[in-house]
Each structure stands twice: as C-alpha cells, then as structure tokens.
C-alpha cells in the first residue's frame, strides 16, 4: 500500500505556492488518482485495527525478491442474526512472495502497514514491475501485479481466489497519466466495466467523475468527486448514484501532525456516520486515534523499537455494542 501513497515532494509544494497568484491553465499539476482522493483522510481515519496477536516477518532474499510470513491469532467475528456479535478464535498463517523491479532505488515495502519510516524513505520509489502473491491457510489466495508499460501507462491486476464461491474476483486496471489529468479503465470479472477521469481545474482544485456498469447484478452508476488541497489542508467530496455521499477534511497542523474528519451519508439507507481523528508521527512512533458517531473509539500505536522492528498496539472500544477489541503485534523486517 505504501507505494501507492507518495506524499507531495517539496518541489511540488514549492511549485504550487509559487504559481499561487496566477493560474497558468496550460501548466496545471497532475491530480491524484481518482481512487486515492481521500488518501490523507484515510491515512489517519482508516487505521487497520485488529484483534488478537499479529506477527509479520519480511525477509529480503536479494535486491528484488522478498518473502513474507505472517501469523494472526485471535477472535474473529462471525455474522449472526442476533445483535450480539459472536466471536470464534481462529489462527491463520499467511505466506507471501514479493518481487519488485525498481527503476531507481530499492526499498522493501511492507504491504500491510504504512510504515513509520515513511519520512525516511521519502518514497521516491519508481517501481517498474511489482508482483505480490499471498496464500493463507484458510484457502484464500491473492495476487497483485503492477507494471509500468511506459511513463504514462500503468497496468494493474488484482485477483483473489477463495474456496467459497462468489467471493473470487479478478480485476484489471489501465491507468493513463496525462499532464494535468488521469484516466483509468477498469475491467473485472462478472462483466464489470468502469472508467474514472480526474482533471485539475486550477492548481488546487481537481474535479473528477466515474461511471461503472456491472453485468451480473445488472447495475450501473455514476459518480462525481472534487478535491481541493493547499499545503495546509485537503478537502475532498464524492457523490455516487448508489446514494453514498462522502466528505473529508484534513488539516495538517505540521508535517507530523494532522487532524482529519469525515462525514458519510447514504441517501437510500439513511445511514450517517461522522468521525474525527488524529495522526501523530513521532520519531519513534506513530499514533493514530479516531472517534466516530457510532460511539466507537479506536487507536493504533506503532512503535519502532529498533531498525526494522515495529511494535503495534491496537485498541477499539465500541461503547454502544459493548464490544472491546485489543490487539498487539510485531513487525520484523
């Protein structure tokens, strides 16, 4: 995931502030990809809280190839008719193989955690070919491929195979990056076709839209999005014909601290959720916390014990359902 989230480089920010006064419409910056519109908000609000134990180990065999092992133990929730959640203790082992063919420099990227060492990496990674495969003991297998065909065209493929029917899926994405726009074509199984387009309107504002058509549940939809960003804040909004309205606002207090809030509303099911969260990146740790309108408070602490050894503590309190989830984990490599 980390490779998908390159932060704004200093040059970009400088360029933005410089051409602040006059909008040079022939020289607009390239917008963020449509599916990453809310990435800043998601960074602080969508921390992956877990329950139980988690151990991740990544070993780089050589410059391009690395293996990962992870063990997860703990209760997993089982969907049930009653309002009470039923938890069954489970244990899982996951084996993964990663192959990166980098253009510039090589950095091992943990696919599970946006790392604390983010600021050190600066993420100037420019990967030409990326292959990731994962096998889990419960029979799930995922594969991801990302290939830069040219500087502008990127092909991504995702596939998931499970032993339960109807949950296996495959998806192909073709991304084209223009000078001030991005376009994407998505092809998936069960006759899913989608396209997104996002265009920079001014240096700070970008507008986009999407269409999709799914063959098997015979559905189609359309969506619009807008994103406004300065170097101190990011605001984004998205509306889709499925009835979902998402609004996000992130205030960057400094390069280490950001506060985020989001608002989600579904027009058809009349569900409203709002949440407020913070993201604090320290030298030795990263703390993310969030509280939402359903009465759920959650926090994730990622502490770097030494180089390549991270300790995770996760907590989630659901005051309404009286469901308390705690987890701890270790990431090596």
């Amino acid at each position: 995931m980390a490779d998908l989230l390159p932060p704004l480089t200093a040059a970009q920010v400088d360029a933005k502030t410089k051409v602040d006064e006059k909008v040079d419409y022939s020289n607009l910056p390239c917008p963020v990809p449509y599916e990453e519109l809310h990435r800043e908000a998601f960074m602080s609000l969508k921390a992956d809280n877990f329950e139980g134990l988690r151990f991740d180990f990544t070993k780089a065999l050589n410059q391009k190839f690395s293996l990962s092992h992870s063990v997860m133990m703990g209760p997993t929730e089982v969907p049930s008719q009653s309002s009470e959640t039923i938890k069954i203790p489970t244990a899982n082992y996951e084996f993964g193989a990663n192959y990166f063919d980098p253009k510039v420099i090589f950095l091992v990227i943990s696919c599970f955690h946006v790392l604390i060492v983010m600021k050190e990496m600066k993420m100037t990674v420019n990967i030409q070919l990326m292959l990731i495969g994962r096998v889990m003991t419960d029979g799930r297998m995922t594969a991801r491929v990302k290939a830069d065909l040219t500087d502008k065209l990127v092909v991504k493929a995702n596939a998931q195979i499970t032993n339960e029917p109807h949950l296996s899926h495959a998806m192909f994405n073709f991304d084209y990056m223009g000078s001030d726009y991005r376009a994407q074509l998505q092809l998936g199984n069960s006759a899913l076709i989608g396209a997104t387009y996002i265009q920079s309107v001014t240096n700070r504002l970008s507008l986009g839209g999407e269409v999709f058509w799914a063959g098997v549940p015979r559905k189609s939809g359309i969506g619009y999005a807008a994103r406004y960003e300065t170097d101190k804040m990011v605001a984004s909004a998205q509306v889709a014909s499925t009835g979902a309205v998402v609004m996000n606002y992130v205030q960057k207090i400094s390069d280490k601290v950001s506060l985020a809030t989001d608002f989600m509303y579904n027009y058809f099911s009349r569900d409203v959720t709002a949440s407020v969260g913070y993201d604090y990146i320290l030298r030795q740790a990263r703390v993310r916390g969030k509280i939402d309108s359903n009465g759920v408070a959650s926090a994730l602490l990622e502490e770097r014990l030494s180089m390549g050894l991270n300790f995770l503590l996760s907590a989630e309190l659901d005051h309404k359902k009286k469901d308390y989830r705690f987890g701890f984990g270790l990431t090596v490599g």
């Binding site: 703390v287 916390g289 959650s298 926090a299 907590a315 309190l317």
Partner: peptide, 8 residues
C-alpha cells in the same frame, strides 16, 4: 476513551 486516545 481518554485512556485509549490520549494516554498513549
């Protein structure tokens, strides 16, 4: 909530 969000 304070214990979870602020103390760490």
């Amino acid at each position: 909530t304070f214990l979870i969000l602020v103390v760490p």
